[in-house]
Amino acid sequence: MSSTIKAAVLSAGAWSQSSHLPALKADPRVELVAISSPDAEMAGRLGSQFGTPHFADWREALALRPDIVVVSSPPVAHEEQVIAALAAGAHVLVEKPFALSAVAARRMRDTAERLGKALLVGFGWPAAPIFALSRSLIEAGEIGKVEHLTMHLAVNTRALLSGSTDGGWGGKLESSTATYTDKAISGGGSAAVTMSHELGMVEWLVGEPIIALHASTFPPASDIDLHTTVNAEFAGGGSAAISAASTHPYLARPQWHMALYGDKGQLWADSIADTLRLVRAGGEVVEFGAPEASGVYDPGAPTKALIACAFGAAAPAGLTARLAAHVVAVTDAIYSSAKSNQRLQVEDL
């Protein structure tokens, strides 16, 4: 393999400006050959900022045959762009929500597997030290068989889901309103935008899929929910209470709280306090703090993982298309359950 690779970012916007593009430009092994955006003015601004050729049509970017592609478009465009990028020979990172439906998610997953290309999804939280440490403790047998988990995530997305263009991403660009307020484009509200991170995290930590659930949303049965609550069952028999909330813009840092109970021990995590506590069955308590239990998010982590895949690394377990496809199936069940007020099985062929 060459010592350098070519990269392109499709449908770049506010989030790419503060995450994907800086990570790509910071790696000397990466040549950023193209940025695309249907907004020609935005494409021009980003092209000038990052010193990169820019296009209004993403197909022109793929014509340059990049080795890696970041798909940063709204979910409605993911399937077409991801499959085209894979077919052009690239390893791909796509933002979440992964897809508008489980069927579309499976098509992308299956295409990547058939072509032998890495397809990663932007679940960057497994790289945060607090969760990487949690998984290592679980893998070391400190928790034993998982019996119950509670997880809550509060994120400053209330304004976005209510029609604001400011996602608080730290750049000067604004997000498109429809990206977060039109379910036909975005896939939904907090269940799709925020809880998708949790669902991927839960299944990555526990190592088991969610197979059934009962959910509610607020506003009730809304296409763009602000808050979501799910009671879920794992394949191994354990249960989970998972919730996501959209906060007012008083705190930029996402707030994760987790309690995980097993037959050998318990974990308590608070991402804002940078605290992880292990309680063993015999009563011994082990406290972890920053930096080993830091809850700070690295927005470039998924992009760095994509670069590593291009140089031969395996896809990180917490970012795979197979995991993401199941998360979409769970999300579909959440919205169906919230509207029917029924416990549902998760359909995932």
Rank of each mutant, 00 (worst) to 15 (best):
K145S: 14
K145D: 15
K145T: 14
V146H: 05
V146T: 09
E147C: 00
E147H: 04
E147M: 06
H148A: 06
H148G: 06
H148V: 09
H148D: 14
H148L: 05
L149H: 08
T150Q: 11
T150K: 15
M151W: 14
H152A: 02
H152F: 01
H152G: 07
L153Q: 10
L153A: 06
A154Q: 05
V155N: 11
V155Q: 10
V155W: 03
V155Y: 00
N156L: 07
N156G: 07
T157G: 04
T157D: 10
T157C: 12
T157A: 13
R158T: 05
R158L: 08
R158P: 03
R158N: 13
R158H: 02
A159L: 09
A159N: 13
A159P: 01
L160T: 03
L160M: 11
L161F: 02
L161S: 10
L161I: 01
L161T: 08
S162C: 07
S162D: 13
S162R: 10
G163H: 05
G163A: 03
G163R: 05
G163L: 00
G163T: 11
S164W: 03
S164C: 11
S164D: 15
T165A: 13
T165E: 15
T165C: 13
T165Q: 14
T165D: 14
T165V: 12
D166R: 09
D166P: 00
D166A: 10
D166Y: 04
D166K: 02
D166N: 15
D166H: 08
D166V: 04
G167N: 11
G167T: 08
G167L: 06
G167S: 05
G168Y: 02
G168E: 05
G168N: 14
W169Q: 05
W169V: 02
W169S: 11
W169F: 14
W169C: 07
G170E: 04
G171P: 15
G171Q: 08
G171T: 07
G171I: 08
G171L: 09
G171R: 03
G171K: 06
G171M: 01
G171Y: 02
K172C: 06
K172S: 13
K172W: 12
L173I: 08
L173P: 03
L173S: 10
E174S: 13
E174L: 15
S175M: 13
S175N: 14
S175T: 10
S175F: 05
S176L: 10
T177P: 04
T177Q: 14
T177S: 09
A178V: 10
A178N: 09
A178E: 15
T179E: 10
Y180G: 01
Y180E: 01
Y180D: 10
Y180C: 01
Y180K: 03
Y180A: 04
T181R: 04
T181F: 09
T181V: 06
T181Q: 12
T181S: 07
T181H: 10
D182G: 03
D182I: 05
K183E: 09
K183A: 15
A184T: 11
A184F: 05
A184R: 13
A184C: 07
